[in-house]
Simulated assay, not measured.
Amino acid sequence: MSDTPYGGGHPNVARAEALLSVGRIEDACDLLTSHTKEVSHKDADVYALLACCFYRMQKWPASLVMAESALSLNPSHTDGHIFRSEALWRLGRAEEAVTAAREAIRISPHHQSPYQSLSAALRATGDLDGALAAANESVRVSPESVNSHFARYYVLLDMGDNAGAQQAMRDVLSFAPEDADARAVLAGLKDEARELKLPELAREYTAALGTDPGSAHIVAKLEDVALRLVRRTRWVALLCLVYAAVASRAFPTGDDPTSLPAPLGPRMWFFFLMCVGWGVCVWRTYFTLPKGAQLTLLSVVRRALAAKLAAAHSLWGTLCAVLLVTVPWTDRGYEQALVWIGGVPVVLAMWYGAAQRRNERDAAEKAKEKRLKAARERESEAAR
């Protein structure tokens, strides 16, 4: 939250700050806990730093207790009010969180962090206009604070303003071009707006991961893109199967020749085209990707059951297509059975996966609407 160092220069506290800066949160927490037991003088800064530790570990009740301990020692401690606000709205006490954030603003009106906390608390109450105003004020106070622009992004995202959310991330990249989170978020927003193709999306996530190799969030996003690339190959298998059925005369129309087997020349010509089509698909799916994305795609195919199933479906449909055009079938019943055997499992898997993903999106939208409705109801009750 605050950029001000804590603890008045005590070696233990300085070491805890250093541990926090490198992500060793639990070690910093243990050190500070031991420090509070060893010294007789209680320091509000130390408890605020403990609140920060528990906040980063997402232990909201403990963070709230430490923040209130800091405020009992120093009622004007800015970070004490900030961490109290952040913990309160996550514990469902959004109105109290707003009050705590406003108190932090009263104490430190020229610092961006209290405005960010106020924006988050107002979002929790459903007051998106107020949350956006607080986030804009945070940006005004500190135009080159990444967290300030992310506060705007979260509100704009809740408002459904994809273009505004994209602009917030572009603003971050204008002064922090190496910010991995902003680049990854911008890529995701463009993907949601269907402004990027999958290979381009993979390149964006790979570039972001190159800036922050330890980001589990970006790794997950890149793995999701890899899975989508593998799933897309099932369309190629289905197209091969359909054209193989035509070339082998499995389902002749009234204008098509009906004698079997189909001539060897057209069947071999289609086999050649099928090989070329798969070559283009593999080239575009794999070889046009950056090295990091290629490794991720191979890793996903090896580890993820969904990717293995998608690859198996693609191979199965293609194998049936190859059998249709390479074997000189004389019984149309066998050909038609092969088409159905090759196509039905692939179509069912694609339909089921699409339905499941659609249901997940609908559930997420409904949950979001429910939260906003509950927040509005709480706000109206408080007004009455």
Rank of each mutant, 00 (worst) to 15 (best):
W89A: 00
S21D: 10
H77R: 08
A28V: 01
C53Y: 02
L49E: 00
R93S: 14
L50R: 14
A70F: 05
M66L: 08
S40M: 07
L49T: 02
W60V: 07
L20C: 01
G23N: 08
G80N: 07
F83Q: 01
V98F: 03
R90Q: 12
W60Q: 11
V98S: 07
G92E: 05
A18M: 05
P61R: 10
W60K: 08
R56N: 13
V65E: 15
L64Q: 12
R24C: 00
I25E: 04
L71T: 11
Q58M: 14
R93A: 12
K42Y: 08
A18T: 06
L20R: 03
E68K: 13
R90N: 14
R102A: 04
K37W: 10
H35K: 03
M66Y: 13
H41S: 08
R56Y: 10
E38N: 09
T36L: 08
K37V: 11
W60I: 08
Y55H: 14
D27Q: 14
F54Q: 05
E86G: 02
N74G: 07
E38I: 06
R56V: 09
E86F: 07
T33R: 09
T33N: 10
R90V: 07
E26S: 14
D45P: 01
K42N: 08
L64H: 10
A101Q: 03
V98C: 10
S21M: 09
Y47R: 09
E26H: 08
C53F: 02
L20I: 03
R56M: 12
S69I: 02
S21E: 10
D79R: 03
F83L: 07
E86H: 12
L88T: 12
A100G: 11
R84M: 10
L91T: 05
A97I: 06
G80L: 09
P61F: 08
M66R: 13
E26K: 14
G92T: 06
S85K: 05
E68L: 13
V65S: 13
P61N: 06
A94W: 05
E68W: 04
L32G: 00
D79Y: 01
I25T: 15
D45I: 02
V65N: 13
H35E: 13
D45S: 09
R93P: 05
L88D: 02
T33L: 12
E86T: 06
L73F: 06
K37T: 10
A28D: 02
S72H: 14
V39R: 14
L64G: 00
L88Q: 14
Y55Q: 08
E95V: 13
